[in-house]
């Protein structure tokens, strides 16, 4: 299939009239119809229901539309990007990072974007995930890297980067440090660190532990992000609950939470249909292409 064909179908799906769509695409109607027929053949099904006065998308057409829109958007973006390969125009990247993802995780990708795009202007926001998704919708952020949400607003594009388990972070001299991994019942009497946001990662892990041990372990102290949480572990305020992909500071140890087995998906998100700068596009492409050290099952 080629890009004009895909473009014709996207216009037709909007206006649902062959004559008007052909006019909008500036081709004759026979050429337009042939092109759509050819696309149907190549995709292996009827995209449209053609009735005398009514043109409608078939179920197959409805299922193919977002996929073809994605191909078209990616190609348009690449074409636009190619035009700016040698330009020095400013390329903003306004990135939102979950407070529960360690910055070093994206450090190498960011360095590569900076090295390739000298005119990049970088802004990073680290706030509660719900706040950042709202900021995306308001157009204040271009890209968000965070944990997969249970529900996502329709306008978001989301790509899975890798999955990671949960770990307990504890001082080297703690009695549980000699365990290979930790199960919920080990934590029933421990003081654990909670989070200042009810939906934040440590709270999600805590609710899983509470379900297993029948009550919530003691959590008198709460942190707002991964780094502070580890600082609180260092000062002896409790054991930290976090992701196995967090870097472990020298004086602490990380032990995988092996029961219950919990897994979190780390995703990158953009807002569909919003034009992206070259830096933002490059960041998303590099993130999606990356092997991610924490993805053990590649390929």
């Amino acid at each position: 299939m080629d890009l004009p064909q895909i473009g014709y179908f996207i216009v037709l799906s909007r206006v649902l009239n062959f004559t008007h769509a052909a006019r909008e695409c500036r081709v004759t109607q026979p050429a337009f119809s042939r092109s759509i027929k050819r696309l149907e053949w190549e995709l292996g099904g009827d995209l449209l229901l053609r009735e005398r006065s009514l043109t409608q998308l078939t179920e197959f057409g409805r299922s193919m539309l977002p996929l073809l829109e994605q191909v078209k958007a990616a190609a348009d973006l690449a074409r636009d990007e190619a035009r700016h390969l040698q330009s020095r125009d400013s390329a903003p990247l306004r990135l939102g990072l979950s407070p529960w993802l360690a910055f070093p995780l994206i450090g190498a990708i960011l360095s590569e974007v900076i090295a390739s795009i000298r005119s990049m202007e970088f802004t990073i926001a680290v706030e509660a995930e719900t706040v950042m998704r709202e900021r995306m919708l308001r157009g204040e952020l271009d890209v968000f890297v965070g944990l997969q949400a249970d529900t996502l607003p329709e306008r978001f594009n989301q790509w899975h980067l890798f999955s990671t388990g949960a770990s307990v972070f504890l001082p080297q001299n703690h009695r549980l440090a000699c365990e290979e991994s930790i199960i919920s019942t080990n934590l029933a009497e421990a003081t654990l660190l909670g989070a200042s946001e009810p939906e934040a990662l440590p709270e999600r892990i805590l609710s899983q532990i509470a379900r297993r041990v029948g009550r919530r372990p003691s959590t008198p102290h709460r942190a707002g992000n991964w780094e502070t949480s580890l600082q609180l572990v260092r000062t002896g305020l409790g054991l930290g609950l976090g992701l196995s992909c967090w870097p472990t500071p020298a004086e602490l140890v990380a032990r995988a939470l092996s029961e219950p087995v919990v897994e979190y998906d780390v995703v990158v998100e953009t807002l569909a249909g919003r034009p992206q700068s070259r830096a933002a596009t490059a960041f998303v492409k590099l993130a999606r292409a990356s092997a991610w050290t924490y993805a053990p099952d590649v390929p």
Partner: peptide, 17 residues
């Protein structure tokens, strides 16, 4: 040929230019 800029196996961006 249309120009392109894509990530390589080592996580670097490679441009057709």
């Amino acid at each position: 040929m249309p120009g392109f800029e894509l990530p390589n196996a080592e996580g670097k961006l490679v441009s057709s230019v």
